[in-house]
Design a protein around this nucleic acid. Structure first.
Lengths: 392, 392
DNA sequence: GTAGTTTTTGTAATCGTTACCACGGTAAAA
DNA sequence: TTTTACCGTGGTAACGATTACAAAAACTAC
C-alpha cells in the first residue's frame, strides 16, 4: 500500500528502518529512500495559536516585495511616497511590531544594553537604573536588568545571559563577593563595551563612573569630629571593593588630619548583609571602651546599627553619633533621622550609559576608557547633631 | 574607461542611474546591468571588532557539520558519545555562548518573559520580581523588567517592546492611570499569555494573582475601631484599580458592621504620588472636625501622612491612629512604627509566573484563566496602638 | 520615438539556530 | 542470505529581518 514517491511503484518498496520513531522506506527501482510525509495536520484552521505580523504579511497584503516593505518602514529615501504611505498604513492596520530577534540577528546589533546590579531592594540601584533608562531609551536602546543578589555565582550567570543575548553593551556594579574578573573580561574579548559604576573592581581597563568616596568619607568623619566626637569607629565594607577601601581611607585620613589616634579595634568589616551589619554593630558596642561615634560605609548598615543601639537604649546622638552613606529615602524617615552622604544617583546611571553609548557607537579604533568622579553632599540630620547648632 | 564585466567592452556602456550614491552602468551589448564592485576594503586584518563563537566555528574546528554540533549541544539522544564530548569540550575551549537571538528566531520561542511594574523604588515590586525570577530562571526563562513609572504612555511603550522582543509571556501590574486595555489585549491577540497581579484592571479574561484586599482593609479598620477610634478616614487609591475599590469597600463594610456612620468627606482619593498623598493628608487634617484615625490605601501614603501629622505636632496614635497597607520595610523603621497589612510578596511573584508557565507550556486548546487570592496579615505597631494592650 | 538617465522595485544572500529528511553502514531478526 | 532495525551524520530549508545588487518602469530631452 506504500507507494514510492518517485515512480509510484508499490512492489519495489522495502522498509528501511525507523528513524526517531518514524518508519522509512526504500524503493529498489528508483534507488531512493523516503518516509511518509508527516501528516501535515489537516491544515489547522489557520489558527497558528500565535503569529505576529511580519513584513512578509504586509508585503503580500499589498502585493509588493518584502524588501520594499523593509525600506519603507525604515524610512529609506529611495522609495515612492505613495508606496511608503501604503506600507505604513498597512503596518498600523495589521499592528505590525518588528521582530527584534530577527532584526538583531540580521544587523548583529541587538539595541539592548545589559545592567548588572547586586540588588534592587534598597532604592539606591533603582534610582541609578532609572537614570540609565532615561538615556538609553531615547537613544533607541532598551535594557535588560540583572540582579546578582550579592552572589558571585549569580553574577557569573548574569554575564552569560547577557553574552548570549548579544547585548550591545553592559553597565555593571559588582557584588561584595567579587574578586575574580574573568567573567567580565569575556565582554571585552567579545568586543562588547563595558562600563563599571559605583562598585568597581580594579584590574579591568574599562570606563568607570564613581563618586568621590574618599572625599565623602572624609567629610562625614570630619563632621563627627566637629561635633565633638573623639572615639570614632568605622563599620567598613568589603575591601575587595574600591568603594570599601576608599571610604576606609577617607576615614583614616580625616582622623589623622585632626590628630586623632587610629585604633584598629574600632574598624570592623561587614559583608553587606543586614545580619552581618548587626553583628558588627554589637561587636563595636560591646567593646570595653565603646566608640562615641560610628561612621558606617552605607545607610543600610547605619540603619541596622541604629536598631541595635536603640534596642540597648543608647541615646543617639548624645551617647553615640552616627553617619551613613547613600541617603536612602528611609534614612530621612527613621528615628532619629540619619546623617548621611547623598550621591547623585540618576547622574551615575546617566553618565554610565553615556560612556557606554559613546563606546558602542564609536567606529573602529581603540577606545580610551573614560572616568568620571561625582561629588557627594553631606546631609546633616539628627543622628549626628550633638551641638545645638541647627543644620543650615 | 568603464568596462563591461561580461564582454569587457568599453563603448557599449551607458549609465544606468545612481542607487544609494553608487553609479550603475548598462552594457548594451550584453544587455546587463552592473556597478563597479565595492572596493572590498583590503581585508581588514581579520579584526572583526566583534565576533562571538558560533556553532559553525565549533563545527569547522572539529570538521563536522553544524547540525551535528547543534544536536550535541542540545543533548539530543541520537549522537555518538565521543562526538558529543568533543563538541562540548570544544565549546568550552572556544567559550561558546548560544546566540539567543538566532535561537529564538529559529524556534519562535524566546524563553523570555516580560514583567511590567509601575515602579521599583519602593521595595514592594522588587520583592515580587525576585519571587518571579526564582520560578522563571530554574524553568529556563529569563526576564525583561519594564518600569511604567506610573505613566500610561510608558506602559504602552513597554508592551510594544515586549511584543517586539517576542517574549513568551508577560506578567503585569498596571499604573494608577490605566483605564484602557487595548495595549494589553494585543498580547492576547498575538497569543502571548498574560497574567495580571496585584494591580489589575477588569475586562481582561486572564489569570490573576491578588491579595484579599477587602479582607485586609476590613481587618485594618476593625483594628482601629477596637482601639477606640470612631471617626476613621480613608486615604483611598485610584478607583480604576480593583485594589483601590476593594480596599475602599473593606473600609466601608467594617464601619457598617460596627454601626459607625459613613462620612463622605472622610474619604479622599490620591493618585499614588507622594505629593498627592500629602495634599490629601492635609485636606483630612484641615477638616473642621478632623478624623481620629486614618486608614491609608498603602504604606507610602501612610508614611507621607505621618510626616504631615508630625510637622503639625499631632500626637500619634493618641490624637490620630494610622494604618497602612503593604508592610514596606521602611514602615518598621519610621517613628512611630507603622501598623500595616503584610502581603506575601514573593509568593505573588512566584504564583504569577507559575500560572504563566502553565499557560505557555500548555499545548493547544483554550486556556481557562486561573485566579489565586492570597491572604494579608495585620502587623500591629505603634502608629495605631492606643490601648496599652500589647500586640500579641 | 528613442536613447539616455533616473527612480523605484524585485532578487537573493546573509545572520546563527533548529528541524526535518536523506543516506550509508552495521547488527539483529527472519 | 535476505530483510529490517538502529545509529550517526550531513544537507538544506526555514525563522524574520537587512542589504547589495539587478532589473524594470518612468521620466527627459532631443
Amino acid at each position: 500500500m506504500v507507494k514510492c514517491i518517485k515512480c509510484g511503484d508499490v512492489d519495489a518498496i522495502a522498509k528501511a528502518g525507523i528513524v526517531r520513531g518514524k518508519q522509512r522506506y526504500y524503493c529498489k527501482r528508483c534507488d531512493c529512500y523516503f518516509s511518509q510525509p508527516t501528516h501535515a495536520e489537516p491544515e489547522a484552521p489557520a489558527l497558528h495559536r500565535r503569529h505576529q505580523t511580519t513584513i512578509m504579511d504586509i508585503a503580500s497584503a499589498l502585493n509588493i516585495s518584502k524588501s520594499t516593505v523593509s525600506r519603507a518602514l525604515q524610512g529609506h529615501s529611495d522609495i515612492n511616497a505613495n508606496t511608503r504611505k501604503a506600507v505604513l498604513d498597512m503596518a498600523v492596520q495589521l499592528d505590525y511590531q518588528p521582530n527584534l530577534l530577527a532584526l538583531g540577528l540580521a544587523r548583529s546589533r541587538s539595541y539592548t544594553i545589559g545592567i548588572i546590579v547586586p540588588e534592587f531592594i534598597n532604592s539606591f540601584f533603582p534610582y541609578i537604573i532609572i537614570g540609565a533608562q532615561q538615556v538609553a531609551n531615547p537613544a533607541g536602546y532598551h535594557v535588560i536588568i540583572c540582579q546578582s543578589n550579592e552572589s558571585l555565582e549569580t553574577e557569573i550567570a548574569n554575564t552569560q545571559v547577557l553574552l548570549a543575548s548579544r547585548v550591545d553593551g553592559v553597565i555593571a556594579s559588582v557584588t561584595g563577593e567579587t574578586k575574580t574578573l574573568e567573567h567580565f573580561s569575556k565582554f571585552q574579548k567579545a568586543g562588547i563595551p563595558l562600563v563599571m559604576f559605583n562598585r568597581i573592581c580594579e584590574g579591568l581597563d574599562v570606563s568607570k563612573v564613581l563618586v568621590d568616596d574618599h572625599d565623602g568619607a572624609y567629610k562625614g568623619v570630619t563632621h563627627l569630629i566637629q561635633q565633638g566626637c573623639r572615639r570614632i569607629a568605622h563599620l567598613a565594607g568589603p575591601q575587595n571593593l574600591q568603594i570599601g577601601r576608599e571610604r576606609l581611607q577617607g576615614y583614616l585620613d580625616a582622623l589623622r588630619d585632626h590628630n586623632l589616634p587610629i585604633d584598629e579595634e574600632l574598624i570592623v568589616y561587614y559583608d553587606l548583609s543586614n545580619a552581618s551589619a548587626q553583628t558588627c554593630a554589637r561587636r563595636l558596642l560591646d567593646l570595653p571602651q565603646p566608640p562615641d561615634a560610628i561612621f558606617a560605609v552605607n545607610d543600610p548598615a547605619a540603619i541596622q546599627l541604629l536598631l541595635v543601639a536603640k534596642s540597648r537604649n543608647i541615646r543617639i546622638p548624645a551617647e553615640l553619633a552616627v553617619v551613613g552613606f547613600s541617603n536612602e529615602p528611609t534614612s530621612a524617615l527613621i528615628d532619629p533621622a540619619l546623617t548621611t552622604l547623598a550621591q547623585p544617583l540618576d547622574e551615575i546611571g546617566k553618565t554610565a550609559v553615556q560612556f557606554l553609548l559613546q563606546e558602542i557607537e564609536q567606529e573602529e579604533g581603540p577606545y580610551a576608557p573614560m572616568q568620571r568622579i561625582l561629588k557627594t553632599e553631606l546631609i546633616i540630620r539628627e543622628s549626628s547633631l550633638r551641638t545645638k547648632a541647627r543644620p543650615s
